[in-house]
Simulated scan of single mutants.
Amino acid sequence: MATTEYQVTGMTCSHCEHAIRSEVGQVPGVEALDVSAATGRLVVTGPGPVDDALVLAAVDEAGYRAERL
């Protein structure tokens, strides 16, 4: 299992979390994810490394910005 953590900017509520969860959950290789508006963090888990560019694009599609930690 590979876990990657991201800092997300602009996330303020459960609706924001849901929007990110919906988009990032569609990225190939993502088996699980945890997103928290309180901490501004997104944690993505997959069987192997998940493509950062795809995760960042999915967050962008949801209307937020992210960077890998």
Rank of each mutant, 00 (worst) to 15 (best):
V24H: 04
H15P: 01
V35A: 11
H15Y: 09
P49H: 01
R68Y: 01
V50M: 03
T3E: 15
R68N: 04
P49S: 08
A38D: 15
V43S: 14
R41A: 14
R41F: 11
C13S: 11
G29F: 01
D52P: 15
T3Y: 07
G48E: 15
A2I: 11
L42I: 13
V8M: 02
A58Q: 10
R65M: 05
E67M: 14
T9P: 00
T12C: 10
P49K: 00
R41L: 15
A53V: 01
T12A: 12
G40S: 13
M11T: 01
S22E: 09
M11G: 03
R65F: 03
A2C: 07
D52C: 13
D51C: 05
V59K: 04
V43F: 07
M1A: 11
P47R: 00
L69N: 02
A53T: 03
L54H: 02
A57V: 00
D52Q: 09
C13R: 06
A58L: 06
I20Y: 08
G25P: 13
D60G: 13
Y6E: 13
V44K: 04
Q26M: 13
H15V: 07
D52M: 10
V24N: 02
M1E: 09
P49N: 07
E67S: 15
L56N: 05
M1T: 13
V8P: 09
G29R: 02
T12G: 05
M11S: 02
G29V: 01
C16M: 05
T39D: 14
T45P: 12
C16S: 05
A19T: 01
A37Y: 15
V44N: 07
R65P: 00
V27N: 07
E31N: 13
V50G: 03
T12Y: 11
H18K: 14
T9R: 00
Q26H: 04
Y64A: 11
A37K: 02
M11V: 08
T4L: 14
Y64V: 12
M1R: 00
A53N: 02
M1Q: 04
A57Y: 04
T4R: 01
P28G: 08
C16L: 03
A19F: 00
A38M: 11
A57I: 05
V50A: 10
D52N: 10
Y64R: 08
C13F: 08
G48L: 06
P28L: 10
H15C: 04
A62D: 10
A66P: 03
V55K: 06
V44G: 09
E31A: 12
G48D: 14
V24T: 04
A66L: 06
A19P: 00
V59D: 12
E31Y: 01
A53D: 14
L42W: 12
V55Q: 06
E17S: 07
M1D: 09
Y6Q: 09
T39V: 04
V55Y: 05
G25I: 12
A32N: 14
P49E: 15
L42K: 12
M11R: 02
E67Y: 13
G29E: 09
P49Y: 02
E5C: 06
T39N: 10
T39E: 14
C16V: 03
L33I: 09
A38N: 07
A32E: 14
R65Y: 03
C16P: 05
A58V: 07
G48I: 00
E23P: 02
S22Q: 06
G46Q: 11
A57M: 09
I20H: 09
